[in-house]
Simulated scan of single mutants.
Amino acid sequence: MNTYATNTDRYREAPHNPSERGRKPRVIVLIRHGESESNKDKKVNEFTPNHLIPLTEKGWSQARHAGVELLRILNLDNNDIVENLEAKYPLPPHRHKGLTLKDYKPLNRRKDRNIVFYTSPYTRTRETLKGMLDVVDEYNLINSGVHVCEDHAYKPCGKQKHSIWPCIPSGHYENNESTHCFVGGNKSEYLQYRVKDEPRIREQDFGNFQEVSSMQDVMKKRATYGHFFFRFPQGESAADVFDRVASFQETLFRHFEDKHSRKPRDVIVLVTHGIYARVFLMKWFRWTYEEFESFTNVPNGSMMVMELDETADRYKLRTVLPKWTE
């Protein structure tokens, strides 16, 4: 018997046997980070490494509001709490209202209990995730009486050049019994989440320190050459990002199919960057590069929702993306 062929055939057949498959997430959500210092003033790029650029005060507000927006699309115990949180964390003044959700009415009403967050390791994405988790923690406290100790809360930044992260690492984090200061109130289940640092979902590399006037010339060349194939000096093209996206999506697919060794994941959230999010959708939905280039960047703090249609066994994009023609 050819063992290699037998194992290969078994692997190929597994996806067609529902009893041997893992449960796919009900929704996959992509979040663009909140406004960063670089979004506000490009000169920051001349002396601050791109991956260390933090959020502005407005960006933190957008991050907390993104946390509320995430809760709004979940199947939860108490939507009244979400309404109160939305009043507490409104959209910042003069902020775009966000992207439109089209035809989104949860196809599956099963309660969402487990969320897996993947975050780009850039400071602005980690800080965006921190703002979102603060809102999720607040929901858990009100709904379930679960309080995360301050010393054991998710920390967006660690120390460079240290092989061991101080206290709770930002690279891998989970809110579970070890992070709780107390559990009180009613017996409602709390939203459990896990955080994974994922370098593959980082921003497109535009080069190292970026001199503003030079970058303006480069951006003009990109507009002429095309956004997808143009490679930045000392950096990447969107086509290079596509390769990272393909690798990461393969990782997700393996997790979806693994029934026995993986923890549940009702919802997956990627806290990432504008270009990466669009390339992710391009790869997933098999857009051509022309289709990719027809879309403009999404506003800071925006949410893009992919919902699983179990009857068709495929995801549908529920978010309407902005286009240049608009």
Rank of each mutant, 00 (worst) to 15 (best):
Y139L: 10
K24L: 15
A14R: 15
P49D: 14
K24F: 05
H65S: 05
M304W: 08
D41W: 02
T319N: 01
S19P: 00
L191N: 08
A5G: 06
A87V: 01
S188A: 09
K283C: 01
Q234F: 10
A277R: 00
G226N: 02
R126C: 14
G145H: 05
N108L: 05
C167R: 15
S170W: 15
A5L: 09
H147Y: 13
D77N: 15
V305R: 00
L55D: 00
Y11K: 14
R231M: 09
N78M: 02
V29R: 00
D77H: 15
D9R: 11
T296A: 10
N114H: 07
G145W: 03
D9I: 14
P54Q: 06
E57F: 12
P90K: 07
Q160V: 10
V195I: 07
H96Y: 07
Y11P: 01
V271K: 07
D197S: 08
G184K: 15
S247K: 14
V212R: 11
N300P: 07
T251E: 13
P90I: 15
L281M: 04
R23T: 13
E307V: 03
R314A: 04
G158Y: 04
L76Q: 07
L270V: 04
M306N: 02
M132C: 09
Y11N: 10
E189L: 05
R64Y: 04
E293M: 14
T179M: 08
L252A: 04
D134P: 01
V146M: 13
R113G: 05
V320T: 09
N79L: 02
L252F: 00
P49R: 13
F206P: 02
C157L: 15
G145E: 05
I142W: 14
K196E: 03
F228I: 12
T123A: 11
D197R: 06
F229H: 13
K42M: 12
R231S: 11
K323I: 06
L133Q: 09
R202M: 02
I53L: 11
R72D: 07
A87G: 01
R318T: 01
R231Q: 12
A238P: 06
I73P: 01
D205N: 11
E211W: 11
P54M: 06
T325P: 00
V29G: 02
P322K: 13
